[in-house]
């Protein structure tokens, strides 16, 4: 790909707006709708920082009950035992299923936590106009977007267990209250990643 000038400039600086949906580039920054696909045009996502902050804070609040309360209750021969997310991982480790335990640990504890921390870092970078390696920060954003959906693993696993193990008092698995909180964390962080505009990282960099 040829570079236009030696130093790349942002489209907005040159008076262009890119349609977020179809990618069409328009020589205007005030036009309201895309001439090609008719969706609403914004040079940058509106209130991106505020919306992402709000979603992250909500997710952070729900992250606590998601980890404290039982995510499912396992009944075996009349004996009911509540499991938290961490408890489920411990049970997998005890029964020597380390790879699967690692998988669940990454998907349901590390990924949500790293997503929250990562997005907070990106927000701080944009808010305080840090001079950073923007390429690296964009890559962090891309990773956050990619891994988000994999946290749903625990929710799907519970839905399968709940459906299959349903024998009354002999053997039964019931979803717990933490499951709803955890699902909300996953959905909220996915929305948070979507509302964050990575172009904001580049906007205040003095050299690109």
């Amino acid at each position: 790909m040829k570079r236009i000038t030696k130093k790349l400039t942002s489209a907005l600086d040159q008076g262009f707006t890119r349609c977020h949906d179809c990618g069409y580039l328009i020589k205007a920054v005030t036009q309201s709708s895309c001439p090609a696909c008719f969706s609403t045009l914004h040079p940058r996502m509106p209130n991106s920082v505020q919306r992402t902050t709000a979603l992250i804070l909500s997710a952070l609040c729900l992250y606590v009950p998601a980890n404290i309360f039982p995510i499912m209750t396992v009944t075996q021969l009349g004996f009911a035992e509540p499991h938290t997310i961490m408890g489920g991982i411990m049970a997998l480790i005890e029964s020597d299923m380390i790879p699967i335990a690692m998988l669940v640990l990454i998907a349901s504890i590390l990924v949500p936590l790293l997503k929250l921390l990562g997005l907070t870092l990106l927000l701080l970078c944009v808010h305080y106009r840090w001079q950073v390696n923007a390429r690296l920060f964009t890559r962090i954003y891309r990773i956050i977007c990619f891994v988000g959906r994999w946290s749903m693993l625990d929710i799907f696993m519970i839905s399968i267990l709940v459906a299959l193990v349903d024998m009354g008092g002999i053997a039964q698995i019931i979803a717990g209250s933490a499951a709803t909180a955890f699902a909300a964390v996953v959905v909220l962080t996915m929305f948070a990643a979507k509302t964050f505009d990575p172009r904001l990282i580049w906007d205040h960099q003095t050299q690109s």
Partner: peptide, 28 residues
């Protein structure tokens, strides 16, 4: 021109052939 959706760099459109990939020179 076209713009990169993730860093808003103003670019000349690339014309890759099937099998090739075009990355943004600024953010990848």
């Amino acid at each position: 021109f076209e713009a990169c959706p993730e860093c808003d760099a103003l670019l000349n459109p690339a014309l890759p052939i099937p099998g090739e990939k075009a990355h943004c020179p600024r953010c990848g």
